[in-house]
């Protein structure tokens, strides 16, 4: 169902390390699988409750009141983060998440929106193992992102 590689990983591979030519050489069957995958995902999405998922409380930010300076600084330091599509691949593979409720996508997403409360403590859960960087389909340098977020959130680093 997933795009399975020879090393047996069922994950979104890092296409940025693939050449374009390789990417277009996928056989039709793979293509077909992807179509089915999409349908399945849509089905699950519509029936989330039946699959043991619950619906999260909606969070709302007032972007016009948020202080986006740190977030902008982050984007400057880690330009690849501009490519993030919020797919959650990073969270899915995260080593820390295997032990605790730690959601790296939520952390960087929240940071990006200028909501920095509690993120410093949250980030200390990360082990910097780098799995997230390896699986990110957009080639976001997550380790660099995490280090930079930590530094931007350190009081002595307050340059604003």
């Amino acid at each position: 169902m997933f795009d399975t590689h020879a090393d047996g990983v069922q994950t979104v591979c890092t296409p940025s390390l693939q050449t374009n030519a390789q990417r277009h050489q996928q056989p039709f069957s793979v293509h077909l699988k992807k179509v089915y995958l999409c349908r399945l995902v849509f089905y699950i999405y519509c029936n989330m409750a039946n699959f043991g998922f619950s619906i999260k409380k909606t969070r709302s930010f007032n972007l016009s009141q948020a202080d986006l300076r740190k977030a902008e600084r982050l984007l400057e330091e880690v330009p690849s983060y501009r490519l993030c599509i919020g797919c959650g691949g990073c969270t899915a593979t995260c080593s820390a998440r295997q032990f605790t409720d730690f959601d790296i996508r939520k952390v960087h997403n929240t940071f990006r929106r200028g909501q920095y409360d509690k993120l410093a403590d949250e980030l200390r859960k990360c082990m910097l193992c780098g799995k997230c960087t390896l699986v990110c389909p957009r080639g976001v340098n997550l380790r660099s992102l995490i280090i930079n977020m930590r530094q931007l959130l350190t009081p002595s680093h307050e340059t604003f």
Partner: peptide, 12 residues
């Protein structure tokens, strides 16, 4: 190791 989790054929 963490990385081997992404290449399970090695641990297999």
């Amino acid at each position: 190791g963490c990385m081997t989790q992404l290449t399970p054929t090695i641990s297999e």
